[in-house]
Design a protein around this nucleic acid. Sequence first.
DNA 1: ACTCAGATTAGCT
DNA 2: GCTAATCTGAGTA
Length: 210
Amino acid sequence: MDEAARGLLGVLLVREGDGGRRVGRIVEVEAYAGPEDRASHARFGPRSRAAAMFGPPGIAYVYGVYGMHTCLNVVVGPAGRGAAVLLRGIEPLEGVVRMRAGRLARAVASRRVAAADPAAEAARIARLPAERLAAGPANLAAAFGVDRGDDGCDLLDPAGPLRLEADGIGAPRLEIRATARIGVAYAGPGWADRPWRFVASRPLAPSPQA
DNA sequence: ACTCAGATTAGCT
DNA sequence: GCTAATCTGAGTA
């Protein structure tokens, strides 16, 4: 379970089409187990909005939250298990311009921003450093243009418009830190505090002494 | 049928 | 730090 989550660190997420190719390296994830995990959407069962979680490994589970945000998960483990990994952070490698456009598209879709000052929002996003564009689960989804239409799609299909790819060079050297998952206090002791959030430092440069 | 809370984010005190 | 924004779906508060 947590092995699958750690294994996704360093993997590339690729979005083709929709105005350009976007590629980034996964640097932050959270593991969610099946129905027994009180923090997991799988607890609502295979007929709930989280139905995709019970599908075969490698498909996407996309959900909306807080009325405005979208998050992307990768189903892991055997079909029927209900386990998935939430993608929380990506380091952009290619298509940064398209990622900014994706962020802006989401912002403009918000009544608040549309009514207030779209131009100021556009300027704010234009100033964001690339590494912030896909930091945070909802920002990541916006940057890669992921919406609920992507729910259930096969992320392992090499020809798919949204997919995972192994890094051709091989796994980069990563320093991985484990912490409790974010925003799941409601799950209670034993689940809320489980250290299933994994954050990779930026791929380590060849260390000076090695 | 209705209510409430949510795997979040950004902006302000 | 605190709170508003905004809407779907789960549980009936």
